[in-house]
Design a protein around this nucleic acid. Structure first.
Length: 442
RNA sequence: GGCCACGUGGCGGAGUGGUUACGCAACGGUCUGCAAAACCGUGUACCCCGGUUCAAUUCCGGGCGUGGCCUCCA
């Protein structure tokens, strides 16, 4: 089966050809662990988990390496820890743990590696050192800066020229920069801030260098796919490319660049001031992770997605319908050919969902269940099912018996009254030739 | 201001140079004491204006609208 992926660098779908089919390598930018991840952060987690699963399906489980970093050095982390009066370590540990729990609750597999910046300071310093030696970076006032003039094609990913970037700059430029677009690789730390000894004094890394250093260590100079949110195209990914390609004498960092679109809430931009800001945790309080996962996949990953209550309800209903007929909790997980085919077209998850509906419509429950499991829906946990579990079967049976008696006596008024009572309990009854059965309303 | 996406039926949301997406809702039918569920059936949508073409929702240009990026935000 041919896999095509939309490559941001090329601005078109391209046939995916791995560097080494026995080790397909994927790197996705993970969280900066200073606070709960919001629902928008859940999108890349879920989308790239689907990609990870698809790659495993196509190349074999043992032949895909997925790296998602945890950034645990950052000024926001320092500020938040001070604000809360806890140690930086405590904050990053707690936030990282919650992030991983949330990811699992959303049906995501653990990545092969989840490297932390603090565990890779040696690699980071070594890479900066190499960049200085190559003339691509310079020391100024205790900082080490990357010199974008060392990279003739700087701006190629974002398709932006230096002139227009400088013209559009909104921020005051540090006086010690040779070029306004030069960015920080290393900066000095005060005594209170986390810092590491380096050839340039005690300090800490800039934002972009960690991904370059960790991907190099875990995936090599060039790997297959680099992913993240679309907002990371510039400057984060552009700068990663600049650093890594300079350090690697021009060899490309990644062969394919994938970026997920943004999320809005009920048609509006999510923001704290609008009061529509939700963390993943918030959403998981009200909705099963699998429902959140399915809802996230209803839109194609590159499209903007509008996060709505109605959408969640529809997703819950769809999953409940499938799980009601297919034994999700069974064993075996294998993508049905139609599902794999949909996903192989640049992760066309809406087509995947249509394929799942088709399997359901055809009554191919075994294949449906197997595909669902392979996609990370392993329990069929829905709000509908939770409600069902909360219903007292004995009460329902008693009411059903009373209704049956009323019907036998042709007292349809009473029968209908009982039916309304059951309906209020969330029970849906089905009068069949063999008697009355019941189910939970979905 | 610069750059980049997107604009599909009541709603969500794929896709395509000429042929049914799919789901939800709605409507009709079968069934039923009446319903519900289930099953069967029904929708002739593609922001506006030009252009290319035998043919455009699909390609090109312009406009309008929405969103994103423009130094640390997925």
């Amino acid at each position: 089966m041919k896999l095509t992926l939309y490559d941001t660098a090329a601005r078109e779908k391209r046939l995916f050809v791995p560097i080494d089919p026995r080790n397909v390598r994927l790197y996705v930018c993970g969280p900066t662990v200073y606070d709960f991840a919001h629902i928008g952060n859940a999108r890349p987690v879920i989308v790239f988990d689907v990609l990870f699963r698809l790659l495993r399906h196509l190349y074999g489980e043992a032949h895909v390496t997925y790296v998602r970093n945890i950034t645990d050095v950052d000024d926001k982390i320092n500020a938040r820890a001070a604000e809360r009066g806890i140690s930086i370590r405590q904050l990053t540990e707690e936030t990282a743990r919650i992030y991983q729990e949330d990811a699992r609750a959303l049906g995501c597999l653990d990545p092969t590696h989840q490297p932390r910046v603090t565990d890779h300071m040696g690699e980071i310093i070594a890479m900066i050192d190499r960049l200085i030696a190559l003339g691509a970076a310079y020391v100024a006032e205790g900082h080490v800066l990357f010199s974008i003039e060392a990279k003739a094609d700087y701006g190629k990913l974002a398709r932006r020229s230096l002139d227009e970037m400088i013209a559009g700059a909104r921020v005051d430029v540090a006086p010690y920069k040779k070029n306004p677009m030069d960015f920080v690789l290393w900066k000095p730390s005060t005594k209170e801030l986390p810092g590491w000894e380096s050839p340039w004094g005690r300090g800490r890394p800039g934002w972009h260098i960690e991904c370059s250093a960790m991907s190099e260590k875990l995936l090599g100079d060039t790997f297959d796919i680099h992913g993240g949110g679309i907002d990371l195209v510039f400057p984060h990914h552009e700068n990663e490319i600049a650093q890594s390609e300079c350090a690697h004498r021009g060899r490309p960092l990644a062969n394919y660049w994938m970026h997920n679109g943004f999320l809005q809430v009920e048609g509006e931009k999510m923001s704290k001031s609008l009061g529509n800001f939700f963390t993943i945790r918030d959403v998981l309080k009200d909705w099963p992770g699998e429902v959140v996962r399915l809802n996230m996949l209803r839109s194609h990953y590159r499209q903007p997605i509008d996060w709505t209550l109605k959408g969640l309800q529809e997703s819950d209903r769809a999953l409940a319908t499938w799980a009601g007929d297919a034994d999700i909790a069974g064993s075996g997980s294998q993508l049905a050919p139609t599902i794999a085919e949909a996903l192989s077209d640049d992760l066309n998850t809406p087509a995947m969902i249509a394929g799942l509906h088709a399997l359901h419509g055809e009554g191919d429950h075994a294949r449906l269940a197997s595909s669902l499991r392979a996609l990370g829906f392993e329990k069929g946990d829905t709000l509908s099912r939770r409600r069902a579990q909360a219903i007292d079967a004995a009460v329902v049976e008693t009411l059903l018996a009373a209704r049956a008696a009323a019907r036998k006596a042709k007292d349809f008024k009473e029968a209908d009254r009982i039916r309304a009572e059951l309906d209020a309990l969330g029970v849906e009854i089905k009068d069949g030739p063999a008697g009355t059965t019941w189910d939970v309303k979905i």
